[in-house]
Design a protein around this nucleic acid. Structure first.
Length: 864
RNA sequence: GGGCUUGUGGUCUAGUUGGUUAUGACGUCGCCCUUACACGGCGGAGGUCACCGGUUCGAAUCCGGUCAGGCCCA
């Protein structure tokens, strides 16, 4: 134990946090591959290296660190890896922006180098925040998806799924962002509400409504509802497309809504997902009118080269000129846009790579995983059930994992590298062997790259040691922590890939955290100006306070509003705990502490039984990831049970110099030691600081989790009574205008059981306290009568005075049980309800006392 | 339009399988600087548990509907 003289008056989080950060060693958090302990592998989310570790990340990581630290103390071999999901458009866009270039202005290699450089810088910045937050990261298991070591595995996983038939290439309509010039997956399409124009025009004699006249060149059919009598004569006909003059068939389809527009629609390749549906179902022709840059193609004839907006204007003008544009209406519609750049997406038919989605397989694995909170599983189920297309994994970008494939220039056959050649960039190197089919040595490297989710969806395979064969040594992981916003992407793709590559679920449990909203209850955004960055909180209140906010801000899994109040409250709790620490150390160093002391006093037993309850509550809560419940129980124990009640009760005994303080010292030591350990996962710096003063040279983070139990039901019940008695007497002092430390004379407590309080109650109340088990012998005396003049006045008017005099004249027995009527100046009058209340005083053994009841217990107080 | 989720004092929030007086924090009001702590202690005020209906001896809790918010999707 360090001397209390060493303890500064105030807790200086900045000094303490920096000091421990320099003392702690990374090695303490390394996963031990040879350990005999049970493993606890966490499939940590690899954040996108934007350079800012935002508050949502912070919340997610707080949860991870809480259970990582808890599990370590519980004796698990914990792996808390840190990944970085580097590839993707945002970085490309940022690089273009920072350097005022477009990706086509420099070579692919140069562009990649610039992206890597920016990413490395950003990772550096984010690592600093992670360390400040005291996350117990296993830096020996850090992975960076843009590094060859990692993306080689991404490529290996691609090849495995290619050979097992999960991956195929095909020409198929895909969502395409013409600004980013790449295909995107459905998960990357964001829908936005927009107002557009619905144009009615004459289509070979039939009125048709369309929002996208620019797609007229891509029209491949006209569809009507089979029961729509207006159009029954169109059956089996072909129709001539206005302006373009090609013939298209008329198809009948139930999905056409006769009430929308004119009830007849044109099918274009492709205006929306419904067009793709009809196109497939009716086996229609393919007319590609828009290219990858979003410009009109050959098919569009004289409109070739225009972008879609220009083309729309031109076609509408030409329709007007030909007098076939009938009318226009405003229409609210939802447009699919690129989630990165918000450009409306086009559906283009392109040769792309796909991963087969087998919904049943994924649903089955999802059901084998425990979900926290449970209802998040439903989101996965809903997403899985409505999958229509396979997952398009090819992207036409640069900063991403190359698709490890060549095409034979002669016969088109695919060539793939051997495992040991990975990673490869097929645009830079050639295959080692001639074409299997035709023997040619001329190849073209695939220029397309992989969707970033192809990298991140093997995070769990990577950390569990996957090498391309069978089940990895540490697979499945024990838990996946992540936000609910990426259930349909990261969670979904990870399950898909794990099942495809290992045949098993990726994790035993998944813990889904909520989103962090601004103080105003809205999603944090620049435009609202409600963004809070972790760094700001770290500077003002420190990491431990921020971590407490993360634990207590909301129930695990629900969205959480950021709230400075919670951070302030957290920091106040630390102040309180710091004062408890100072008090405990001053007391414990007085005479050392005796681990063999006997605990006999009620207050001491009560503290230990409440501690035992708290340990159980906190442990149970942590097992089910209820961090709010756990920390709340800890705070309540420290603040209410230990500080406000226990310490106040035993102070007097601790100040004494005799043997009776030994039991209190042991109880205090036990509770304080346990508190440090309970707090360790939540406030690692603070807990370490407190514990280091209690047990110098030892780290609380290397101690086992508290296993303290104390079974003493009587102490819980009697101790609660003791605390209640003290509270009632305090209230009595307050009500009678006495200072809390004012001397009180004699207090007699009539309880059913004998209580050994070692004199604690008396010292706490500054009174002579007697606990008695016999019945109280009290005489009740009416000392005065309170009259209710607002009742008496209106009822008796001038006789009011006489009424009150008559009541005063009643005997004590009559007053205790008042008559219904009374004789007033010779006549019977009714005694109104609530007209008066007798005031009693009590006499005990001839002295006047005040009486308080606490349940069945009677307290009498004889003032000094 | 569909799925999920939420609606508790001024603000935020707890409330597990329905069970006496609905939890805590912040704010607010009053008293108190008692040898760990005024970044504190003690006490008080403040709630038709969104609304309507149902099940029940009993509903914040279960069921149905309405209204409002959030998220995801069509």
């Amino acid at each position: 134990m360090s001397s209390s003289h060493d303890l500064p008056r105030n807790y200086d989080f900045a000094e303490v946090e920096e000091r421990w950060r320099s003392i702690w060693r990374d090695e303490d958090h390394y996963f031990d591959k040879n350990s005999k302990k049970p493993q606890f592998v966490i499939d940590t989310p690899p954040p996108y290296p934007t350079g800012n570790f935002h508050i949502g990340n912070a919340l997610n990581w707080c949860y991870i660190d809480f259970f990582a630290r808890y599990k370590r103390m519980k004796g698990f071999n914990v792996m808390f890896p840190q990944g970085w999901d580097c590839h993707g458009l945002p970085t490309e866009v940022k690089v273009e922006e920072l350097n005022h270039i477009t990706k086509n202005d420099v070579s692919r290699e140069e562009f990649r180098r610039m992206c890597r450089e920016l990413t490395e810088k950003n990772i550096g910045l984010m690592r600093i925040t992670l360390r400040k937050m005291a996350f117990s990261t296993d830096w020996s298991n850090e992975y960076v998806t843009m590094e060859p070591k990692y993306y080689g595995k991404t490529q290996l996983s691609f090849l495995r799924m290619l050979s097992s038939g999960y991956i195929y290439q095909s020409e198929h309509p895909v969502n395409y962002c013409t600004r980013c010039e790449t295909a995107i997956a459905f998960a990357e399409v964001a829908y936005e509400e927009r107002e557009t124009q619905l144009n009615y025009f004459d289509f070979d004699g039939v009125e048709i409504a369309t929002t996208r006249p620019e797609l007229l060149a891509a029209c491949v059919a006209v569809a009507v509802h089979p029961d729509d009598e207006r159009y029954s004569k169109l059956k089996d006909r072909t129709m001539k497309v206005p302006l373009f003059c090609h013939d298209v068939p008329v198809v009948l389809d139930e999905a056409v809504d006769p009430a929308f527009g004119s009830g007849a629609v044109m099918i274009c390749t492709f205006g929306d997902k419904q067009d793709v549906h009809w196109w497939k179902q009716h086996n229609l022709a393919l007319r590609k009118a828009i290219d990858r840059q979003g410009r009109m193609t050959e098919i569009a004839g004289k409109y070739k080269g225009l972008n879609t907006t220009e083309c729309r204007v031109a076609i509408l003008a030409d329709m007007k000129a030909q007098d076939i544009l009938l009318r226009q209406e405003k229409l609210a519609q939802r447009v699919g846009t690129c989630w990165r750049c918000k450009t409306p997406i086009e559906i283009l038919s392109e040769r792309q790579w796909f991963v087969k989605i087998k919904p049943a397989e994924i649903a089955d694995a999802a059901h084998q995983i425990s979900w926290f909170p449970e209802h998040m599983l439903l989101r996965m189920e809903n997403w899985v059930e409505q999958m229509e297309w396979d997952w398009c994994i090819s992207r036409q970008r640069i900063f991403a994992t190359p698709i490890p494939v060549w095409f034979c220039k002669k016969c088109g056959e695919i060539a793939v590298p051997e495992d040991k050649e990975l990673p490869v960039d097929p645009t830079q190197v050639s295959p080692k062997h001639p074409c299997k089919k035709c023997g040619s040595t001329e190849f073209t490297g695939e220029e397309d790259v992989l969707d970033t989710w192809m990298d991140s969806s093997i995070s769990v395979l990577n950390v569990t040691g996957w090498d391309g064969s069978g089940t990895p040594p540490f697979f499945p992981a024990q838990i996946r922590p992540q936000g609910h916003d990426i259930i349909r992407t990261w969670a979904f793709y990870t399950i898909l890939r794990s099942v495809a590559l290992t045949g098993q679920k990726p994790w035993e449990e998944i813990l889904v955290n909520g989103m962090v909203l601004g103080e105003d209850g809205f999603k944090m955004s620049k435009s609202r100006g409600n963004i809070i960055v972790p760094e700001e909180i770290l500077v003002k209140y420190g990491a431990d306070a921020l971590r407490q906010w993360g634990a207590m801000g909301a129930a695990t899994g629900s969205d959480i509003m950021f709230n400075w109040n919670d951070v302030v409250a957290a920091s106040r709790f630390q102040t309180k705990m710091w004062n408890i620490t100072k008090f405990a150390l001053i007391q414990l160093e007085k005479e050392g502490f005796d681990p063999d002391a006997q605990i006999t006093a009620l207050a001491d037993r009560w503290l230990l039984v409440r501690l035992s309850d708290t340990v159980e509550q906190v442990s149970n809560a942590l097992e089910s990831y209820q961090f709010d419940v756990a920390l709340k129980a800890i705070r309540e124990f420290a603040w209410e049970v230990l500080a406000d009640n226990y310490i106040e009760l035993v102070k007097g005994r601790l100040y004494k110099d005799d043997n009776s303080r030994k039991g209190a010292c042991l109880a205090l030591h036990t509770a304080f030691d346990a508190l440090c350990r309970l707090l360790a996962p939540f406030t690692p710096y603070f807990a370490e600081e407190c514990y280091s003063h209690l047990s110098p040279g030892k780290s609380v983070h290397k101690q086992p989790w508290v296993a303290f139990t104390y079974d003493d039901d009587a102490a819980r019940i009697e101790g609660d009574l003791l605390v209640q008695v003290v509270a009632e007497v305090r209230k009595y002092k307050h009500d009678t205008g006495l200072a809390l430390n004012a001397p009180l004379g004699k207090v007699t407590i009539y309880a059913q059981q004998t209580v050994n309080d070692e004199g604690d109650t008396g010292r706490t109340l500054n009174a002579e306290v007697h606990w008695r088990t016999d019945a109280a012998k009290l005489d009740r005396v009416i000392t005065d009568i309170d009259f209710n003049r607002s009742v008496i006045g209106p009822a008796f008017r001038k006789q009011a005075g006489a009424f009150m005099a008559a009541i005063k004249a009643l005997s004590p027995e009559q007053l205790a049980n008042p008559p219904k009527t009374i004789t007033l100046e010779g006549s019977e009058v009714t005694v109104p309800e609530n007209a008066f209340t007798p005031k009693y005083s009590y006499m005990e053994e001839g002295a006047q006392v005040d009486v308080i009841t606490v349940g069945d217990v009677i307290l009498t107080i004889a003032k000094a």
